Simulated assay, not measured.
Amino acid sequence: SMPDTAERGNRIMAIFHFTVKIVGRSKGKSVISASAYLNGDVMKNEETGRISYYTSKKEVVYTSLMMCENAPPEWLHVPEENIKRFQQSIRYKRADDKDAALEKFKITFQKQRLWNEVLKIEKNADAQLGRSFEFSLPKEWSRQEQIDYTTEYIQKTFVDEGMCADWSIHDKGDGNPHVHLLVTMRPFNPDHSWGSKEVKDWDFVRDTDGNIVVDESHPDWWQDKKNPDRHGIRIPVLDENGVQKVGARNRKQ
């Protein structure tokens, strides 16, 4: 089958793979570890004290952090003492390009702050922490085109919609350049505080006047425990075969 194509100006780009996963507490996958892998760097999980090392990953050819408009600007602050400590490190002293090494350190520090802040707010054992994407890039593109087009795509698709985007391009030189991307799931309020995650609004059975039918004996009757005013007979979500979709923990959708 032909790969999906996305038109870019007068170019057609073939997207050969595109995967999406949720990084959550219940899966046992650390969002700090996921970010450290994506960046090919070292990150500390402030909650557990665990440090993730991925400095041997040489295929990370570009890395970026794009914060959305309402994210707290102070999360981007890298303290002077941390910079000085890094400049004393073997990694910095051995780096061929010291400016690039310092820039990478700062970005990684900022990403570490972002995901540790996510861990502070998402306390539930089954909390969803972020969405993880991986997609391939056309190897015909120059590195700059890969960076520019990916930046534009992530800005429009995620950052403009209120998400922070932690991403990098990996390229082992084997003809498979690809992007690893982690985005936040909880929105920010205009005052830079965390907002509420969207509550799924069910479609409820309504009468001819458009009012929600109240029948608590109906098998599909549902009431929100936290907000009892949200209630009704849920209209089931069916898959393409007309079968009731079932979500996590066998909950009807």
Rank of each mutant, 00 (worst) to 15 (best):
Trp115Ala: 09
Ile235Asn: 00
His218Gln: 06
Glu134Cys: 10
Phe18Val: 05
Phe133His: 11
Arg113Thr: 09
Val60Tyr: 06
Ser56Ala: 11
Tyr37Leu: 10
Glu140Trp: 04
Ser168Lys: 03
Pro79Asp: 06
Arg94Ala: 14
Met67Val: 12
Asp201Ile: 02
Ile154Glu: 10
Trp115Glu: 05
Glu145Met: 02
Ser52Thr: 11
Asp99Phe: 14
Arg206Asn: 11
Ala71Val: 00
Lys84Gln: 15
Pro187Leu: 09
Asp239Phe: 11
Thr108Gly: 08
Val199Gly: 01
Asn124Cys: 03
Val118Ala: 01
Tyr149Phe: 14
Asn211Leu: 05
Asp96Lys: 13
Asp203Pro: 03
Asn116Ala: 04
Ile147Lys: 04
Arg206Trp: 05
Trp222Leu: 02
Lys120Phe: 06
Gly210Asp: 13
Asn241Trp: 07
Gly232Leu: 00
Asp215Asn: 13
Ala125Ile: 09
Ala125Pro: 12
Tyr92Asp: 12
Tyr92Asn: 10
Arg85Thr: 09
Ala100Gln: 11
Gly247Glu: 05
Asp174Phe: 07
Lys123Arg: 15
Arg234His: 01
Ser132Ala: 10
Thr5Cys: 07
Asn211Pro: 11
Glu152Val: 13
Ala125Phe: 15
Gln144Gly: 03
Trp141Val: 08
Ser136Val: 07
Asp160Pro: 00
Ser168Ile: 01
Phe18Gly: 02
Gly40Phe: 11
Arg113Asn: 08
Gln112Asn: 07
Gly247Gln: 09
Gly247Ile: 04
Asp171Gln: 06
Met13Ile: 14
Val205Tyr: 05
Glu122Trp: 00
Lys172Asp: 08
Lys29Ala: 13
Lys139Cys: 06
Ala165Asn: 01
Gly9Arg: 05
Ser52Arg: 08
Arg206Asp: 07
Ser217Ala: 05
Gly247Thr: 01
Leu65Asn: 06
Met13Asn: 08
Val23Ile: 15
Asp209Ile: 05
Phe158Cys: 07
Leu114Asp: 07
Ser33Cys: 14
Glu117Pro: 02
Cys68Asp: 12
Ala14Cys: 13
Ser64Gly: 04
Ser64Arg: 14
Ala127Lys: 13
Gly242Ala: 05
Leu114His: 01
Pro79Arg: 03
Trp202Tyr: 10
Ile147Val: 14
Lys225His: 06
Gly162Thr: 09
Asn227Gln: 04
His180Gln: 14
Arg94Lys: 08
Val78Asp: 03
His180Thr: 15
Asn70Glu: 11
Lys21Leu: 12
Glu69Cys: 11
Phe86Trp: 04
Thr184Gln: 02
Asn227Leu: 03
